[in-house]
Amino acid sequence: MTANPKGPANMTQPNPTKTGMIDFRGVNKWFGALNVLKDITLSVKPREVVVVCGPSGSGKSTLIRCINGLETIRDGDLVVDGQRVGDPATNMTQLRTEIGFVFQSFNLYPHKTALENVTLAPIHVRKIPRAEAEHAGRELLAKVGLADKVNAYPAQLSGGQQQRVAIARCLGMRPKIMLFDEPTSALDPEMISEVLDVMVAVAEEGMTMMVVTHEMGFARKVAQRVVFMDAGAIVESGTPDEFFSHPKTDRSRAFLSKILRH
């Protein structure tokens, strides 16, 4: 693991003083004239689970999409697993293999079975032999409770099942970091817990995670920290208990009263 927090200080990377697995330092991003990320400074330690919440349009998706370079930042530093994102010296394709990303809309490959969805990148990107990748893929699908859906196509699966395949697809790459962008927001209520259960299991195995979600139960159960964003800035950050029981700002109180009402 290159991300040992007490690692040697003489690393070849540009930021030898790093301590986090994900380090935002003074990050700014614009979409045209819109300052979507405002001077973000945030450090996520290895094995830490951070929940990001905030009103719609506050920049949560943009924040985590910067981590694997789906969005590019304008200024500031973003160092992930010891590598500076956006630096020409950083091999982004390689860095992305260490970062799983779970989308709100699953984004499975519809022309591939569940197992093929899980093994595609391991075989072609990680260059794992097919038999080995398939064996691991079956185990992962069993782990997310879909042993009987190995040969099903996405269109034959419910939303909750598709999202569990999507999580298995990320785990198949054996990533160091998992990012989740509102993984349960597109699901019918009765399917939310089956996905959250899988996420809890992943967290309990020590995965470094950043999760955009409003699921307080999940946050209380596994998150070490909740970060509240509003209008592109991190407004508040604390333990789940501090944040949900004793919000410090008017904006977080207003936000919490909204998500608690339903």
Binding site: T97, F101, P110, H111, A121, H124, V125, M173
Partner: peptide, 30 residues
Amino acid sequence: IPRGQVEASVASGMTYAQRMRLVVLPQAFK
């Protein structure tokens, strides 16, 4: 081909060529 699928393949570390060959073209072909 929906943008989300392309993003998923980018996120999994595929190169442009792999993305085209494994995800986009087989579906576009149909």
